[in-house]
């Protein structure tokens, strides 16, 4: 016989309590956009209402105006082009050298024995400090600037590369050997593609280093360049233009990060 239905009422509110929530934070875009908008509004208000001295802290609107003026006069593109040229050449040179050394350290005992202590010893030297030396050796022109950037990119790239090569699973290399692949083929088809994720993440670091060093390198003898723009705007007491230059630098950094992200997504689809 079925039990009386009088228990139906209490059955309905006796559910098993839910205990598995939380500890899974997700990023939504809304709060970030609002936070940025609020910050910028507060900043503008601080300057407009004279809480902050407009002489030393230009308002967002003034920075925007300075940026527009630079773009309209065409000067901005000259500065960006000059910096990008130095970054591109320096980064390519440093990356080529760093990858060559890093992969060699990853593959060959002699390279590793010599290379790892050398890199560890020279890596910590701030490349900015070497700039006067490079000027002495290469002159005040582009070579000393490119050399500073290249050297700054070389070391983290070498470190990332040999770490990435070390992280290629040995089982895949043994598999390739067991199929009789020659050494060059194993490097080309197993080691390098396997090291690519580590190498690409090393690029993120080396790209931001290149950006920092281009500003330092443009301190001597650079009429054009974003770093030069920031520097001489400071000398001219044009703080609005200075911060406009800083904004451009940040934008440059964001673009580079975006491009690298895209590259990673395309090349590492197999992960």
């Amino acid at each position: 016989m079925k039990p009386p239905r009088a228990e139906a009422q209490s059955d309905a509110d006796r559910k098993v309590p839910f205990r598995g929530g939380g500890f899974a934070p997700r990023i939504t875009r809304g709060p970030a956009v609002i936070a940025f908008a609020v910050l910028i509004a507060l900043w503008q208000a601080a300057v407009s209402w004279r809480i902050a001295n407009p002489l030393f802290l230009p308002s967002p609107i003034e920075i925007g105006r300075a940026l527009y003026a630079l773009a309209a006069s065409g000067e901005l593109w000259l500065h960006i082009a000059a910096s990008l040229r130095r970054i591109a050449i320096g980064w390519l040179l440093g990356t080529a050298g760093g990858l060559a050394l890093g992969v060699a350290i990853g593959l060959f005992g002699l390279a590793r024995s010599v290379g790892v202590p050398l890199v560890s010893a020279l890596f910590p030297i701030p490349k900015i400090a070497l700039l006067p030396l490079f000027i002495l050796w290469f002159g005040i022109g582009e070579p000393s600037k490119v050399a500073t950037i290249a050297l700054g990119v070389f070391f983290p790239t070498a470190v990332a590369a040999f770490g990435a090569v070390d992280n290629v699973p040995r089982s895949l290399i043994r598999m390739a050997q067991s199929f009789g692949l020659p050494f060059a083929d194993i490097v080309r088809k197993v080691v390098l593609p396997g090291a690519l994720p580590g190498i690409l993440s090393g690029f993120r670091i080396s790209a931001s280093i290149a950006l920092i060093l281009v500003v330092a390198a443009e301190m001597i003898n650079a009429q054009y360049g974003i770093g030069a723009l920031v520097l001489f705007s400071g000398n001219l007491m044009r703080t609005d233009q200075l911060l406009a230059g800083v904004v451009v630098l940040s934008a440059l950094g964001l673009v580079i990060a975006f491009v690298l992200g895209r590259l990673e997504r395309r090349l590492l689809r197999w992960r």
């Binding site: 089982s171 895949l172 043994r174 598999m175 088809k189 197993v190 593609p193 396997g194 197999w270 992960r271």
Partner: peptide, 8 residues
């Protein structure tokens, strides 16, 4: 462990 190249 199969030892396949994940990118191929």
């Amino acid at each position: 462990d199969f030892a396949l190249l994940p990118w191929r």
